[in-house]
Design a protein around this nucleic acid. Structure first.
Length: 470
RNA sequence: GCCGCUAUCGUCUAGCCCGGUUUAGGACGUCGCCCUCUCAAGGCGAAGAUCAUGGGUUCAAAUCCCAUUAGCGGCACCA
């Protein structure tokens, strides 16, 4: 039975790169009818952020990456790690280290200054068991694993065979002086005890993997399959970071990206099909995903393509659904959103123009409020032209004489008026558009007029006539 | 500094494992044309890649081999 996990630490919001890792794990599990587990790696008390774990669960839910087990918290499992550390200590695979943080720090700085690799000098390694036991009662200590001085070779499902030499790797701290395990220990122990078969994680873990391999060996366990995903990059090719744009999935949600689009976009950052398919339903993702087709090189996060993709998904959404999702944004902009039927009509007229849900309030605001703002540019370009005053006056009369004020009837009489006056239709359409909406761009004119209704249309046209006069 | 990973259009990538079907394919973006009451959307088209560089192997290399370079990642009592 295939089993994978997503194992974030609760130190803040979910990173967009983390979302991709979670997605790949999720897809791999679903594709293989396996299990997807969520584990919260909260072993660093100094970086713990209140509410972060809940936030992680919420945003995963928003993204639709439902997990089958968890969330499991490492802080609930301290006894288990402690027991494993004792095992290592007893078998000589690890030793207590009583060096102070100051000593370690000074040593590291000196090594770096001498252009040497920063590495623990092994001072406490030579302590006898008796000395170690005695000191342990007096001083705080950490526990370090012993790195064997040999070549460590492992297979990565994405990168193939990878080799490191143990002599170059530090005797890693696996238990901190506060009694909490470090990532390396907790990760290995949990993956084993939770039955994880495939570890799919970011490339930043590749060089730690030999430590994990050795821990598995010390415990007498078979390691899982490792797959290290390429990193997500800033436009300058450095590891994607806060400084150069949004990395929190939460902020994409707030900006009005659809989870389907974010997932689909992130899917393509490091994975592709042979035919370079771009748009995937979730079912297709699950059906087609495979680790073998993951790329090896880092991918720059291109917001332009995400925006395009979001537009694609928005255009495909049924109008009821689109409106439902847009309502929080409409309300946030200060508009009343109780008349769903009316909002649906407004949103429908603008659907093909929406890139982000947060665009919606602005796109439809002239349907929702009376004191519309006339765009300066629109006034200059369209209204301040000779003949506009007369046209608007005539049109107001024509519209007021209409029996029924509909898309069809308004179009018919407007075109008739154009012929009668030997005007190009655009000479009438444009000023009317500006008069009723305040701007030059918008939905097709007559759909807009019908939705606005005669009263509002006449009121706005007459208002503009007054403005031209004044 | 040491270790490791990576390297195809501006960006995401296909092709590479199993050399010839590649005038290196698709997508975003850009530009042009069409449609059109505007903006979009849509349709059509264009520009854009000496396949990091240099050597081999071969009748033939983006594809195989070697070296080099560059970029990135890791080297915490962070994950």
């Amino acid at each position: 039975m295939i089993k994978v996990r997503f194992a974030p630490s609760p130190t803040g919001f979910l990173h967009i790169g983390g979302l991709r890792t979670a997605l790949y794990n999720y897809l791999f599990a679903r594709h293989n009818n396996g299990i997807f587990l969520l584990r919260i790696e909260d072993t660093d008390r100094s970086r713990f952020v209140e509410g972060a774990a809940e936030g992680l669960v919420d945003i995963l839910k928003w993204a639709g990456l439902d997990f089958d087990e968890g969330p499991l918290f490492q802080s609930d499992r301290l006894d288990i790690y402690k027991e494993r550390v004792d095992f290592l200590l007893k078998n000589g695979f690890a030793y207590r280290c009583f060096c102070s943080a100051d000593r370690l720090d000074g040593m590291r700085k000196a090594q770096i200054a001498k252009k040497q690799p920063p590495k623990y000098d092994g001072l406490c390694k030579s302590l006898s068991p008796e000395e170690s036991d005695k000191l342990a009662k007096e001083k705080p200590f950490t526990v370090r694993m012993k790195m064997p001085q040999e070549e460590i070779i492992f297979d990565d499902a994405i990168r193939g065979t990878v080799k490191f030499h143990g002599s170059l790797i530090d005797d890693q701290v696996i238990l901190k002086s506060d009694g909490y395990p470090t990532y390396h220990l907790a990760n290995v122990v949990d993956d084993r005890m939770m039955g994880i078969t495939h570890v799919i994680r970011g490339e930043e873990w590749l060089s730690s993997t030999p430590k994990h391999i050795i821990l598995y060996r010390y415990f007498g366990w078979n390691p899982p399959v490792f797959a290290h995903l390429p990193l997500l990059l800033n436009p300058d090719k450095s590891k994607l970071s806060k400084r150069q744009g949004d990395v929190a999935v939460e902020s994409y949600k707030e900006k009005g990206y659809l989870p389907e689009a974010v997932l689909n976009y992130v899917l393509l950052l490091g994975w592709a099909t042979e035919d370079s398919q771009q748009i995937f339903s979730k079912e297709e993702m699950i059906a087609k995903f495979s680790i073998e087709r993951c790329g090896k090189s880092g991918a720059i996060f291109d917001i332009q393509k995400l925006i395009w993709m979001n537009g694609e998904y928005i255009r495909k959404l049924p109008i009821e659904e689109l409106t439902r999702r847009a309502i929080p944004f409409i309300e946030k902009a200060g508009f009343e959103a109780s008349d769903i039927g009316y909002l649906q009509k407004c949103v429908f007229l603008e659907q093909e123009k929406i890139k982000l849900l947060s665009d919606v309030p602005h796109l439809i605001d002239f349907f929702l409020k009376d004191d519309i703002i006339y765009d300066k540019n629109a006034l200059d370009k369209v209204v301040k032209k000779p003949g506009v005053f007369e046209i608007l006056n005539d049109i107001a009369v024509v519209y007021s004489e209409l029996k029924e004020f509909t898309e069809q009837s308004t179009e018919t009489v407007t075109r008739e008026y154009a012929i009668k006056k030997s005007l190009k239709t655009a000479q009438i359409f444009h000023p009317v558009r500006v008069a009723v909406s305040g701007r030059t761009e918008g939905p097709s004119l007559f759909h807009m007029l019908e939705l606005l209704g005669r009263d509002r249309v006449l009121k706005r046209v007459n208002y503009l006539i007054g403005e031209i006069n004044g």
